[in-house]
Amino acid sequence: MSARRLAGALLVLLAACDSAALPPRPSADVYEFRLATTPPRVLHWPSGNTVRIYVAGGTVDGQAGALASALAQGPAAWNRSALFGEYRLAATAELAAADVLLRWSGEASPVDLSQCPPGGTRAVTTFCLNSGRDRLQAFPLAAGGMSRVKMVVTILPSQLTIPGRVPVLVTHELGHVLGIARHSDEPRDLMYDGELSVTLPSRRDQATVQVMYQTAPEIVP
């Protein structure tokens, strides 16, 4: 085989060499994710960021390990959707390194929640916008000084009595932590605002978070 033939063969191969591709996401697979301000605003962490989550497990028997074990599943479920390293959720054992606090309601919080108290019912993700409404404020430490915690996930302890409920709630709230500031109207999505029938992000949840992280943020934690 001459060099000329080899070069010709390579050129033919190159001409047929479109790179591997993921297909466009159908519009119906992407639900509204923007914060319900007027106009709606995109909130998400800077691309490439690792979002570190600290668990305040509580002191009540049976509660202490439940959030930590829920956190063993939730980040991996969402991290699968970050195909291009847009974000990474990870647990941290150090409050000083945490961007997010995961806690039980009714338990003492290591950060001061008085400026932005958590409401909601079963589970809620709380954050405080700054006056310019383009950043999230860090929560003060309960013991004084500032933390770097920008979001607090609060779970109602009564959910612990329902088998399998807490891990699903935590994974759902991690969708809000990533920036999905709304809910899906499709019961088969993890970000559905009702009785959850799935335990992992659905195809629509994945498409939504992928589109969200390719959309320029207007609010950055």
Binding site: S19, A20, A21, L22, P23, P24, R25, P26, S27, V30, L83, F84, A207, Q210, V211, Q214
Partner: peptide
């Protein structure tokens, strides 16, 4: 790999 995710509708 390239991700062609954005449609005109999106």
């Amino acid at each position: 790999v390239e991700d062609l995710l954005a449609t005109p509708a999106l």
